[in-house]
Design a protein around this nucleic acid. Structure first.
Length: 449
RNA sequence: UCCGACUUAGCUCAGCUGGUUAGAGCAUCUGACUGUUAAUCAGAGGGUCCACAGUUCAAGUCUGUGAGUCGGAGCCA
């Protein structure tokens, strides 16, 4: 018989009290005490203590238990018992221990390790309870995102990962040869294609990995990360912001509902997440600048001679991490900052008709120092204005011909945004570093394992 | 790309103003133990002190260069 459906998982042990079961998994930890062996077994769904008492089992079974090392793989049979002394509340009274494989010298011990060591053993580090919990939250975040859009009339429309040109001209791209057609680039955003898709299906989202060859080295950057990008026909900036708030609230509340155990393992203060309810805070860029200057948050500016001076924050400058952090310190839930100076924003963003110095752009900043998780905008829908900006930014006009077509044939107001999955998971889990929230992080100085 | 820090046992680290044979805890191995939770107790093994060059009677320790890693800035999700 295939074991596919007959496995007893540790997650479901509560329903199996009194029954004789077989668990399959890996030894998380073992301690011996003479005639007693305590084996903590993990099976992917949880961890369960299994107790082997010498007088109760065959000699060979006890010998098997004694030679188990950390991460050895086993099938353990026994009776499920509710037991206060066991972590998790249940334990197995073992009758049989079958060994699949004995692990020798497993490198990651229950003691502390440094970052470099753990990163080099990422393929094994994923088995640790903290990483296990983070990955389960990640999975829930992704499910929440898909459920949210699928349940609100959106269609999934994948954008290509191999692209012929930059979407946003400024950032650096990973380059590769593409047969006889010259260079191709790994996509750093699916947005332009999502716009085309929205003109067909109305409300769409693209969901996939994106690549940025930025040489940034911070705890919130990856060179390969996952992004969900909804794009909606007939949405203006306000509709866009409403949707973003709705989605983030849904994600956080879904994780709270489905990942209680994981959040507890991570030691996350869930009251901070429970507070994430609409409406969030909103501030225009201009209001934010006024706030910074009223609260004496200065900008460090390098002068020509190399010395640094502190100046009032000038309108027109883009916010850096210090400004965003200062603004967010007053908030216990996310805040959207909107209507940035168009000079610092991408060419495809629509100008604010009430103040053409501003773009109809918005960023959502998460609280607790988590920083920017969303960037979005209402898109420029006027053909001539868009073309003007492409020329002004020295972008290759031919490459954007198809994109300009969208404004030539039935252009409509439309908006969208991009949510960084890893930044969201980092915020929700409270992880120190973004490298912990993706199974195999890709960073400027690391591509292995 | 810019600024700063670090590199000593399998892991995490200590090692003072340079001075005989380089230390601890954990992990590993051997033994004891019927309730462990980072078990405890007794014992054992384990080192190219990142690399190269230099100063010195003498370098883990001082100087220079290089490599690797980490943190931060900018850029962004």
């Amino acid at each position: 018989m295939s074991p596919y459906k007959s496995y007893q998982t540790i997650e479901n042990l509560a329903q199996a009290v009194g029954q004789h079961v077989t668990l399959r998994g890996w030894v998380y930890d073992r301690t011996g005490k003479g005639k007693l062996q305590f084996i903590k077994l993990r099976d992917g769904s949880g961890i369960c203590q299994c107790v082997v008492f010498k007088p109760n089992v065959a000699e060979e079974v006890f010998a098997n238990a004694e030679q188990l090392t950390q991460e050895s793989s086993v099938a353990i049979s026994g009776t499920v018992r509710a037991e206060e002394r066991a972590p998790g509340g249940f334990e197995i009274d073992v009758t049989d221990v079958k060994i699949y494989s004995i692990a020798k010298d497993y490198p990651i011990t229950p003691k502390e390790h440094g970052t470099e060591f753990l990163m080099e053993h990422r393929h094994l580090w994923l088995r640790s309870s903290r990483q296990h919990a983070i990955m389960r939250v990640r999975s829930s975040v992704i499910k929440a995102i898909r459920d949210f859009f699928d349940g609100n009339g959106f269609r999934l429309m994948d954008s290509p990962l191999l692209t012929p040109n930059a979407c946003e001209g400024t950032s650096t791209l990973f380059e590769t040869e593409y047969f006889d057609l010259g260079k191709a680039y790994l996509s750093q955003s699916g947005q332009l294609y999502a716009e085309a898709s929205a003109m067909s299906l109305g409300r769409v989202y693209t969901f996939g990995p994106t690549f940025r060859a930025e040489r940034s080295k911070t705890r919130r950057h990856l060179t390969e990360f996952w992004m969900v990008e909804p794009e909606m026909a007939f949405f203006d900036l306000n509709d866009d912001m409403d949707l973003a708030e709705d989605m983030v609230e849904y994600i956080v509340q879904y994780v709270l509902k489905t990942c209680q155990k994981e959040l507890a393992t991570l030691g996350r203060d869930v009251s901070k997440l429970e507070a994430v309810r609409r409406p969030f805070y909103r501030m225009s860029y201009t209001e934010a600048v006024e706030w910074l200057n009223k609260n004496n948050v200065k900008l460090n500016k390098k002068q020509a001679d190399g010395t640094e001076i502190q100046i009032d924050f000038p309108w027109g400058e883009d916010f850096g991490a210090p400004q965003e952090e200062a603004i967010m310190q007053q908030f216990d839930k996310p805040c959207i900052i909107h209507r940035y100076p168009s000079e610092v924003k991408a060419f495809y963003m629509k100008r604010d008709p009430e103040n053409t110095k501003c773009a109809l752009a918005m960023d959502m900043l998460a609280p607790e120092g988590a920083g920017e998780i969303i960037g979005g905008s209402q898109r420029e829908d006027d053909h001539d204005l868009l073309l003007e900006r492409i020329i002004h930014e020295n972008l290759p006009q031919e490459a954007f011909q198809w994109y300009l077509d969208l404004r030539k044939y039935g252009s409509v107001p439309h908006s969208g945004f991009g949510l960084g999955v890893e930044r969201t998971v980092k915020w929700i889990t409270g992880a120190e570093h973004i490298r912990e929230v993706i199974p195999f992080p890709r960073m400027i100085y690391r591509i292995v394992p």
